[in-house]
């Protein structure tokens, strides 16, 4: 669906992030390529959201590099990306207007906006709620709307930060189906979650973080079959990490 692959692979080199002189991410090295669904896994406070925000360009690294292919800076790369947050940001407008707003920001002609918003709402199963104020929708509907809003930007990379953390199983399934839709359309998925079941369902590769360090980065099957590290084993067997 998106333009010819332009920004992948993503190369993260010796990424460090500090806040109030506390080091929250330590020397992360990572290379993410197109096609694979990448799941960033780890307990709360591991630095999953930070890593996503840094890669997306919402935060600036303290040191180290985040390079998208063909772009030296985040500024052009971010236009090929979209991000869905744990608590979706809903504009104080109708569901439909939430999407047309995004299209307007991205410079889509007014005449095209309505049609594309309608299509995205239909895809997310929200056609019947088009005229409902977004903030009156349920949590699951809001998250689907956030995904529909991301869809219209035709991103090459979609970041998802615990998109189902506060949803019930039915809503979670609907969201996961939409994520699969992005994947099928060729969008690179980079998702943070602490939900092991979800990681098993969606991941092609796993980035396992703990206490701000990259502990393991491997093929999903290999990670779930036999993690190479003590921390990894403890996490997938359900032991608490701290």
């Amino acid at each position: 669906m998106s333009a010819p692959q332009t920004i992948l692979p993503l190369e993260v080199r010796q990424l460090v992030f500090e806040a109030n002189s506390t080091r929250l991410l330590h020397d992360i090295n990572l290379s993410l390529t197109a096609g694979q669904r990448t799941v960033i896994l780890g307990p709360n406070g591991a630095g999953k959201s930070l890593l996503l925000r840094l890669c997306h360009g919402l935060l600036r690294p303290t040191s180290g590099d985040i390079n998208w292919r063909g772009t030296g800076t985040r500024d052009r790369a971010i236009r090929h990306q979209a991000m869905v947050f744990q608590r979706p940001v809903m504009l104080r407008r109708t569901a439909h207007a939430n999407i047309t707003h995004t299209l307007k920001i991205r410079g889509v002609a007014r005449t095209e906006r309505r049609e594309r918003a309608d299509a995205a709402l239909a895809l997310a199963g929200l056609s019947g709620l088009a005229d409902l104020p977004a903030r009156l929708m349920s949590g699951g509907e809001q998250q689907r709307l956030a995904l529909a809003r991301a869809w219209v930007t035709e991103p090459e990379v979609l970041f998802l930060d615990e998109p189902t953390a506060s949803l019930d199983p039915a809503a979670t399934r609907a969201v996961e189906t939409l994520i699969e839709g992005f994947h099928a359309a060729g969008t690179k998925i980079i998702m943070a979650t602490h939900d092991l079941g979800q990681a098993r369902r969606l991941a092609d590769e796993v980035v396992f973080l703990n206490k701000g360090r990259l502990v393991e980065f491997s093929n999903a099957e290999r990670f779930f079959e036999g993690p190479e590290t003590e921390d990894g084993r403890a996490f997938i067997t359900g032991d608490l990490l701290w």
């Binding site: 500024d75 236009r79 990306q81 947050f85 940001v89 504009l91 407008r93 307007k104 920001i105």
Partner: peptide, 24 residues
């Protein structure tokens, strides 16, 4: 504070951001 993640993720231009915030 509430909208910044979304609007920055969209890479909204300053004028668009201003307009969105005042309207909402």
């Amino acid at each position: 504070r509430e909208y910044s993640d979304h609007l920055r993720s969209l890479d909204a231009r300053p004028l668009d951001t201003l307009g969105t915030l005042i309207y909402d």
